[in-house]
Design a protein around this nucleic acid. Structure first.
Length: 353
DNA sequence: CATCCGTGGGC
DNA sequence: TGCCCAAGGAT
């Protein structure tokens, strides 16, 4: 390479262009001796796993308003936390979030471990998140490797090996650059670079603080890196959902099993989405299949949900699930596919009155 | 090591 | 419209 990339060039850029984020201590405040709250760093890092900053902001504000400390979160009811997480996706994160909060509150006196190994031992914290918390909250010189770092390193060194095979050499490149001074700011600087300049598509190489040492910039390959192994096509699955509304306005819902898709979340009773025909209804009623079906795409398959609706009297005992009173039911506490079903079912029920 | 696990926005 | 993508972790 013509020049070696200098972490201090990136830190200088970060001092001038750092994004202001709700969970972040600005580089100026950090230099003045302000330390981040490990609880807020941890919460933001878990929310940001495979999730955009734009989507996380409102959830982060809501969670920290409801639960200002890890002890507050640890004491929260499971159902409330799952409901507040609804819409953010990857619901195992919410279940592990609560487990982690309770371990920290009960076994660590409400104080987060300050080492990579200590953090790794907690539920929902893997290699990346442990390194990010150790660096950002405790200023440890950990090698933080996320999607941004992989992209930036692949371009700096013009590495054409496809992910995930390229992971070791990208990690080695990242380790070589991680500075002993300001490791927390450095970790956040690489993420800001990846989010605002070294973006996946049409990177803004002309204004990049690492333009000079970037091999992909010289080779003209930046926009094509990192390479990735092609992914499988998604199959389409078919399922059925039953939406029952009681005369008093209560809705029949079911808590899904703790593991698997949408684990621990509320949903409408129905089939297992394996293309099986009409399953047994959750209660005996005059069911109507509505015209519209809910369409939703998950990580690894497309789903088409056929929707059956029914109005039932107040004394109807369900065979599956439980009725949720009208006043306490919040569609926003449903995972998105279930909220889509609700919107369609509610429209159909309104038309029949 | 491959698979499973959500969602909303951008193009 | 369909596909790609985003601060990964658990199994």
């Amino acid at each position: 390479m013509r020049y070696a990339a200098d972490p201090h060039d990136l830190l200088r850029w970060y001092d001038a262009h750092a994004r202001a984020l709700p969970w972040r201590v600005s580089p100026a405040d950090r230099a003045a001796g302000v330390h981040p709250d490990p609880y807020r760093v941890w919460l933001s890092e878990v929310m940001l796993q495979q999730t955009t900053v734009a989507a996380v902001k409102a959830y982060f504000e809501r969670f920290t308003t409801l639960w200002p400390t890890v002890g507050d979160l640890a004491a929260a009811p499971d159902a409330q936390v799952m409901g507040e997480w609804a819409g953010l996706g990857y619901y195992a994160r919410a279940r592990n979030l609560l487990k982690c909060a309770r371990v920290v509150a009960e076994d660590h006196g409400g104080t987060f471990p300050d080492t990579h190994a200590g953090l790794m031992a907690l539920p929902g914290i893997g290699p990346y998140t442990a390194a990010a918390i150790a660096a950002i909250a405790f200023d440890r010189p950990e090698v933080v490797v996320d999607g941004n770092v992989e992209r930036v390193m692949a371009r700096l060194h013009d590495i054409h090996t496809p992910l995930p095979k390229a992971k070791p050499e990208l990690t080695e490149a990242a380790a070589h650059l991680t500075p002993e001074t300001r490791p927390g700011d450095y970790a956040q600087a690489v993420m800001d670079l990846g989010a605002t300049i070294c973006t996946p598509k049409s990177p803004a190489c002309g204004i990049c603080p690492w333009m000079a040492p970037c091999a992909a910039r010289r080779a003209g390959t930046a926009a094509d890196l990192p390479r990735k192994t092609p992914k499988k096509p998604k199959p389409t699955r078919l399922g059925y959902a039953y939406v029952a509304r009681r005369s008093d306005g209560a809705w029949l819902l079911e808590e899904r099993p703790d593991s698997g898709l949408l684990g621990g979340m509320l949903g409408w009773p129905g089939s297992d989405w394996n293309n099986a025909p009409d399953p047994a209804p959750p209660l005996s009623a005059d069911w109507h299949m509505i015209d519209a079906e809910a369409r939703h795409t998950f990580t690894h398959f497309h789903l088409r949900l056929r929707i059956l609706v029914a109005e039932v009297p107040n004394d109807t005992p369900p065979e599956r699930g439980a009725f949720h009173p009208h006043h306490s039911f919040r569609p926003a506490h449903l995972p998105t596919v279930m909220r889509k079903v609700f919107d369609l079912a509610q429209g159909a029920l309104a038309d029949t009155i």
